[in-house]
Design a protein around this nucleic acid. Structure first.
Lengths: 248, 248
DNA sequence: TGTCAAAACTATACGCCGTGAAGTTTAGAT
DNA sequence: ATCTAAACTTCACGGCGTATAGTTTTGACA
């Protein structure tokens, strides 16, 4: 059978057809959860079809009924995990909606790092080389989740923009410097954010990603004792360089 | 034989003993260069003992005469590659010794990014998950090269410090926040750099690493057209936030 | 209710991988 | 000339992704 088979042939009129589909969905979910469990235990490398099958009491080949290749499974996992990350930072942003911009930005960044520290293997899966020979499909593994994250960052930039704009007067970014698909999301949501503000969002992403990445991959371990403190300093300086006045 | 055998038993008095050692060194070098070639072609994943042996017209097991395990070989490669990176940024720093701090910092950062773009697989090897099941040894794979890079970053911070120090008045870092081994290198070289300056160096590392990392791993690809421009903006803003006056 | 096609799953096999054990060739040392 | 150890090969094991072919199960329809 082809793994791309999404539906049974007959239109789902009878309850029995629904049963097949339900079982199928359950098995798919079990495969994914087994894979995530393996990842949490032994890192992304531990995600192997044979190990998943072993965990499920199945043959490795049975998985091919649900995912065409291992890479397709990994891509699905990346999507799920990246979406979870996007959910986490979005939640932090939303739940601090009433707070001072400095506090909201800090909340977003802390949620980002906290998620990464809680799910280091997930972070590696999403942002690193996920798994031995994995090659991401055309357009990236999780374009939607990546877009959501970028849009979230644009929200940070937009919140800071009234204070920050003065520092970006001689930035010469144009809308054409960015991907149209990204702008489709950002421009309607933040009509006051100019191209230079989008660039700021991406730079911000780089800063946070870099610090968290160095920490997760252990490159900070031999240099300083408390990465928390460095991250805190980063956020303080971020607020300063954005020109946001400290809350009262 | 044990792979850890570094010397032949007899002290190297005779020329013939030297011959053995020379052949050994040549073979070791050939293994490493074959591995690097494979990496450049097919990414870190392509570094397999069997492929290296194939390339050399040998058996895979013969490599065990030179490296105890695949991981030991990979660790050696990481060291070599990381050292090459450290050499590249050091060279950029030294060769701009007479220039304005803003120019020197920019030169360092450009050298860092240029090296990464020229050797993307090397960047992944050093900073990512190098190879399928690889686990770095105690204390990291390339502690010396990492230290050199950190020290180089401290030089940037030290060059900026006369201008930047005013912004870090309320940073409460202490020497005890950092690894003594790192400070042994940094404090003698930059006696005027306080703890907050070291923290600045590490943050700077995070910023640059993050942007380059996002670019190398393709996360920027779907968002903007010219990563160069973003990096340039990063450097402009970096100089601004450090409070360094623009050169004349 | 019996029949049948398709879905779900297993069995076998191939070529990769790292690595251990044992055997063979080669070359420096005495 | 002989001996020893280094260098290298052969064979083997278990793990991996995955292609092919065969088997069992099950929902659909006459």
């Amino acid at each position: 059978m082809a793994a791309t088979t999404g539906k049974t042939t007959g239109a789902a009129g009878r309850g029995s057809t629904g049963r097949r589909e339900r079982l199928r969905a359950e098995t798919t979910a079990e495969i994914k959860s087994a894979a995530l469990e393996l990842m949490a235990t032994g890192g992304p490398d531990a995600i192997t079809l044979r190990a998943i099958a072993r965990e499920m009491g199945m043959t490795a080949n049975a998985i091919y009924g649900y995912f065409a290749t291992r890479d397709e499974l990994v891509t699905t996992l990346i999507n799920d995990v990246y979406t979870a990350l996007a959910d986490a930072v979005d939640a932090a942003w939303e739940s601090s909606a009433a707070a001072h911009p400095a506090v909201r930005i800090s909340a977003w960044a802390h949620a980002f790092r906290a998620w990464a520290l809680t799910n280091p293997e997930g972070f590696r899966l999403v942002y690193g080389d996920p798994v031995p020979g994995y090659r991401a499909p055309e357009g990236g593994a999780a374009p939607d989740a990546a877009r959501r994250t970028c849009t979230g960052l644009a929200a940070l930039a937009a919140a800071a923009w009234p204070h920050a704009r003065q520092h970006y007067a001689d930035s010469d970014f144009a809308w054409s410097d960015f991907d149209p698909g990204l702008l489709d999301k950002i421009r309607p949501a933040f009509p006051d954010l100019p191209p230079a503000g989008v660039a700021l969002a991406l730079r911000l992403w780089g800063h946070l990603h870099g610090l968290v990445s160095l920490e997760i991959y252990g490159h900070l371990r031999g240099q300083l004792a408390h990465p928390d403190k460095l991250f805190e300093e980063e956020l303080n300086q971020l607020v300063r360089t954005l020109g946001i006045p400290r809350p009262a």
